[in-house]
Nucleic acid binder design. Structure first.
Lengths: 223, 223
DNA sequence: GCATTTTTGTTAATTATTTCACAATGTTAA
DNA sequence: TTAACATTGTGAAATAATTAACAAAAATGC
């Protein structure tokens, strides 16, 4: 009845729940792997086994984008992968910048998300004169001052890997240069305009949460 | 009525929702900061402003552990911080190991969670002969072979920063040596015994989710 | 070609989480 | 001391997310 109109998949997402949206990248990468090893079809339950998510949840997640599978058959991995690629905007290159070339920043520059993703760190910024002018894995490091004057309206997001004390200041500069999205690796809670969006990656929080669950939740697990 | 019995705070957690538990580390760190700058009291709404979480959610979160605040006054930052410290087991040192001394592993070793947290990376493992025997920020790097024979029953968790292809193998070794908790930075979904617990930190997923939200969710934000 | 099996897509039920609303109670200031 | 104020803690309501259940339909095997 309430069949979502397909065609341009990017349009088909009025009411995708946040929880669903956050699983899409995992689905996408898993499908890339499956396609790479030559698997052409997969059922929701086999797929669920791989990503460790209940098969019903997976079918429901996909259903927000229309009917992507075939009854009695499952999903065509190639087709599904390409569909998700469009949904995730991974069919066009997303340019991002990195602010803060410390150990973590360097790690991200070396990784650079390129292997399977249409995402590229195109420029890095730091305050350290020893780093400015160098190049790490093909990305050149520039002075933070340049951030102030650069026009970054074509840049999708900034990865913030500066010390906590400088995160807000760096974010302000990035906002001023035209950036709206942030992947914030510092523990600081940024204060940003309404049209900006931040995701946090907080390793200390994750480690503490892990320790908490090990000590508490685990004790009372059914068998 | 259903007042939680206090005293030993660690006992007071029959039914702490997962969502609440995952916020506790953020609360804890924020309180550390507030105490450090000399703030002695805070209301749930001021606190909520800082951590960017609705004040009702904060009060409800705290309420699972009993009555921690005072009506008409708010919360005593020092007291609350110490309470959370106990809850989070941060009053005793948690020893963790790190497996995989690449760029990211090195970044984590340098950070080492020590600044405000009672958590320490006590040993690192890698397969690279050039790294084995070295020391990074006071943590010595050992051969992966040792992991097989080490007794790590005293170790709380392992941080997995190995390439995806080796993550499962490394986790198996860690399990065999007595470890139950994992902070997995590789995209691999680990297959582990029931009494083990994993948390994922997946930067590629986070970046893709960010890009997704920027392109979709953002468009239809109320004003 | 037909019966059996598989598996989707979806509605309904359940569970989890957040938010509302406000009584209860301590705090503050005069 | 007392009135005005601030703020918690919490039931109840609203939202969001997951899981169950199953009809519909396609695939498979004979």
């Amino acid at each position: 009845m309430s069949m979502v109109k397909m065609g341009d998949p990017v349009m088909a997402n009025q009411n995708v729940p946040q929880a669903t949206a956050e699983r899409l990248p995992l689905y996408y990468r898993t499908l890339q792997r499956l396609v790479a090893i030559g698997k052409t079809r997969i059922s929701s339950s086999e797929f669920g086994g791989i990503v460790q998510i209940d098969s019903t949840t997976i079918r429901k997640d996909f259903s927000y984008f229309g009917a992507l599978g075939r009854k009695g058959y499952g999903y065509d991995t190639q087709h599904l992968m390409e569909f998700l690629k469009k949904i995730l905007y991974q069919d066009e290159l997303s340019k991002v910048i990195l602010i803060g070339v410390g150990h973590l920043g360097t790690a991200l520059l070396n990784h650079n998300f390129q292997k399977n993703n249409n995402t590229k760190i195109v420029k890095a910024y730091d305050v350290d004169p020893l780093k400015i002018g160098t190049e790490i894995s093909g990305t050149s490091v520039h002075s933070m001052d340049e951030l102030e004057t650069d026009d970054n309206r074509e840049i999708t997001a900034a990865i913030l890997t500066v010390p906590a004390a400088h995160a807000q200041k760096a974010a302000d500069l990035a906002i001023a240069s035209g950036i709206h999205g942030f992947l914030n690796f510092s523990p600081t809670r940024l204060v940003l305009p309404q049209d900006a969006y931040v995701r946090h990656v907080d390793m200390t929080v994750e480690l503490q949460a892990l320790i908490y669950f090990l000590n508490h939740a685990m004790e009372e697990r059914k068998s």
